[in-house]
Each structure stands twice: as structure tokens, then as C-alpha cells.
Computed example of a mutant assay.
Amino acid sequence: MNKKIVFALVLMGLLAISAANAQNSLILNNNNDDSMFQVSLMQAFMHGEYDGVITVGDLKKHGDLGLGTFEGVNGEMIVLDGVVYQAAADGSINVMNDNEKIPFATVTKFDEDGKIENINANNFNDLTSQLNKEIEKYGTNNMYVIKIKGDFSNITVRSVEKQEKPYKEFTDVAAVDQKVFNHTDQTGTLVAVYFPEYMKELNMHGWHLHFLSDDKTKGGHVLGFNGFKGTGQIDEIHDFNMILPTDDSFKTMNFTENMTSKINSVE
């Protein structure tokens, strides 16, 4: 065979391989941008699994929007625009350094798939009912993260004091060490995470909301509010990745108990 023909065939083959690799790389990158990344199980957290699994620095590689907590349940986590904030038990808001450890969190690389204009919600249940109607347009069997910005007549949030070993279950923590704050006339952002019913063994079914004020002085896990007006940006999620604890307590933990009622009681 002519050497020029052989060279041309080899070159064509290399170009085809390169194009295929580029396409596969693009697909993988798209999947990563449309993925929910979770640290540990909600059920393990409810049982008292509060030791850190990864660091804040590692978490930021997997997402720029989400929620969670810090080692020992040291306050509530709000991840917004790539910054990891702590709503501490004393009511303060802190930017956490990359070395802080995380026992539980859920984040995504936010990619807007839709908008919700002119939200008017009387209270928490009114808002989540409206959000349910919105995601019905996409499919309630997907996961969602919604960034909701606007004004609140008042909003009630909580944080939790850092726990020391031996850790107690989170229902007991919430009963004793929960700190509740009520704020009036607030402008800020809700980070709303949704998991479908069939994933309730991994996380809580439905909506989990954390709040951060625009001036970065108030925030926490949302217990309730009255009078909200604002807008929302929806990210529809189709991919799920999770990292689990490696300590002995997790390896031997009993997950046969139905934790739904306990989860609902603290949400």
C-alpha cells in the first residue's frame, strides 16, 4: 500500500479517536454540572454521625449552591455562589475556611433550567406548594435545587450548638440545643433542595430550605416565615453522587428503623 495512503488512514483514525474523546469529555463535564453531590446519609446524620467526612475545600469542588452542617453539628451551612457560610448558634454568619470538616451536605454546580417569576407566598407551606406545582412541569421524580431571592415580612430560622462526643441523635439535639431566631423585614436568598419520595432512604423527601440575608448577617435552617415576594431559579438534577463515612460507627450502624417521622419532626 502507498505510504501516503497509510499515513492518511492513520491520521484519520487518530482524528476520529480525538473527536470521540472530546465528545466523551464534554458529556462527562455536562453530567458533573448536572449532578447532586451528597456527603453521607441523612439517616446516618439523624442517628448521630457528626464526624467530618470531607473538608469545605473538597466540597466546593463539587458544587457552588447547597446546604448542610459542620463537624459536630456546628451550626447550619448555606452554600451560595461558591461561598460556604456558617449560621452559628449565636446568630452570627461566618465564611468557613477550606479546612473545616463536614459530616453532611448536599450541593450542586448550579445551572439554571428555568425561572419562577412573581412568587407571592403567605407562609412556608404556601411556598412549598407553589414549588411543587413548578417542578410538576419538569417531573417530580427528579431532584431539584432552587435559588429563591426576595423579601420577607418575617422569617424564623434555627441553628444548633456544636455537639461533643458521645453524640446523641439529632432529635435529642434539636430538643435541647436548637437556637431559634426570628427576623423581620429581611431581603435574602433561600436555598431550596428537593428529593423525590423514592430517595427517602438517602435524604429527606420533599423540600429542605436554608436562608441567608443579603447583608450576610442572618441565616439558618428555615422553620417558617410570613409574607414573601420574590423570584426563583430552578436547577433540575438527573445525576447523584455520594460519599460515605469510613469510621467504624457508620459501618455497624443499624438502618432498619424508619426515620421519616423523626426527620419530619426536626424539619
Rank of each mutant, 00 (worst) to 15 (best):
M259G: 01
D247T: 13
H210G: 12
T189D: 15
A192P: 15
N21T: 05
V107C: 12
D215L: 04
V180S: 09
Q178G: 06
A88I: 05
N132I: 01
K137Q: 15
K165M: 15
V157N: 01
K216Y: 09
H47S: 13
N24Q: 08
N122E: 08
Y85M: 00
D51Y: 13
L223N: 09
M253I: 04
A22Q: 11
I243L: 04
M143V: 02
G224N: 11
N32P: 00
K137V: 04
N241V: 13
D34Y: 15
T171P: 04
I234S: 02
L9N: 06
V145D: 09
F110D: 11
K133Q: 11
G68A: 05
S265G: 10
G52P: 03
N125T: 11
T108V: 11
L212R: 13
P103Y: 03
Q186A: 12
F45N: 00
F195I: 04
L223A: 03
K165N: 11
V160M: 09
V222W: 01
K61S: 15
H210S: 10
E112P: 03
S153L: 15
T171D: 15
H47E: 15
K115I: 14
S129T: 10
K133D: 12
F152E: 12
V193H: 09
F45P: 02
N99S: 06
N182L: 09
V56K: 08
D172I: 05
E197P: 05
N241H: 14
Y85N: 02
N254K: 11
G63Y: 14
G188N: 11
G139Y: 12
M199L: 13
V107H: 07
T55W: 07
N24D: 01
I135L: 11
